[in-house]
């Protein structure tokens, strides 16, 4: 049935929990130590990087399985 098709609920919830953990204390304090990557400050790079990764994984989880 087409109703059932789509990403699995468990995967999505796990991804959401991972997002909450990655974006908040205490991991946030790890990103915010003032280090730099390629001349850019780590904090915004890390936040944007995690953000992009979450989008990519969500897109992958959503789009595989066809339709």
């Amino acid at each position: 049935m087409s109703e059932r098709r789509g990403p699995r609920a468990q995967s999505l919830i796990a991804l959401c929990v991972a997002g909450v953990v990655l974006f908040n204390f205490p991991l946030l304090a790890v990103w915010g130590q003032g280090a730099t990557v390629f001349g850019l400050p780590l904090l915004p790079v890390a936040l944007f990087g995690i953000w992009a990764a979450l989008i990519a994984i969500l897109a992958w989880v959503s789009e595989r399985g066809g339709g």
Binding site: L12, I13, L15, W51
Partner: peptide, 24 residues
Amino acid sequence: GGVWFLPIYLGPMLAMLVAWIVLR
């Protein structure tokens, strides 16, 4: 405030992760 503009966009990102469950 530096990165303080971000939470109001990170929240929607987190919400969208479960959009297929909740929004649908």
